[in-house]
Amino acid sequence: MVVSVGLLYYCIAYTGYISTLSWDGASPLQQPVGADNFTRMLQDPVFWRALGNTVAFFVVTLIVQVALGILLACLLHSQLYLRTLHKVLIFIPVVLATATTAPVFRQMYAPDGTVNGVLEVVGLGAFAQPWLSNGTAALIIIMSVQIWQSTGIVFVLYYAAIGQIDTEVLEAARLDGAGNLRIIGSIVWPGVRGTTIAIAILTAIGSLKTFDIPFLITGGGPSYATEFLGTMIYRVSVAFSQVGYGAAISVVLLVLAIGTAIIIRVSSTEREKADV
């Protein structure tokens, strides 16, 4: 009893300790300047750019991942060939480190890389360009890498959730003449709502945390087009050694993360009550 509860409390204390660190560790550097760091942040166009990118990143990756995840989960619950092979292939990007795959993407989108090579071969050579130097293209690439990397998780969660839907309901719907799309819309989608909410929260937090992918593939450039809050904190506090300013952004990031999680949670429970 003593051992188990002791370790339990140790874990809580340790995590609690870390969660307070983000303020304690930064406050000695922050206090002398008061709220200056925060006003500076509000006037910093790069901060707003990073925030905008983070929001856009969240919306796009969430929609695409949920759509792909549900479609794949439904497909792989059907009687098709090579299901295990497909499952493994979808999940491999999840287990690979961004640090391992980033060089691949840098190479693919390089001026003399695979993508331009393919365009050349299919006769669209005119569209070939140095992709990562184009701001909009670079942002889309970052999003696509994130989608590539985390759809596997979304898929596995949906796959498990759909497995728990009663097959008799599906058969009844089919007897009543519901098509595939109708079944997804009317039975699967409401059936996996809990999973969708959990995924929305995880994706929101994940977008706020985004660091590895932009850092390793574009480094936030060109001219801040792919700057995210995570990379900005790193750049400000490590590269520019302005730990106080970095900590100010961190605090905002933390508030945003907790706020988003609460908003999604609350709005979803309200919807639940309304449904009843």
Binding site: I18, S22, S250, L254
Partner: peptide, 11 residues
């Protein structure tokens, strides 16, 4: 909800 990057300075 704690992002790892927030912790780099205090850590």
């Amino acid at each position: 909800t704690l992002p790892g990057v927030v912790l780099i300075a205090p850590l």
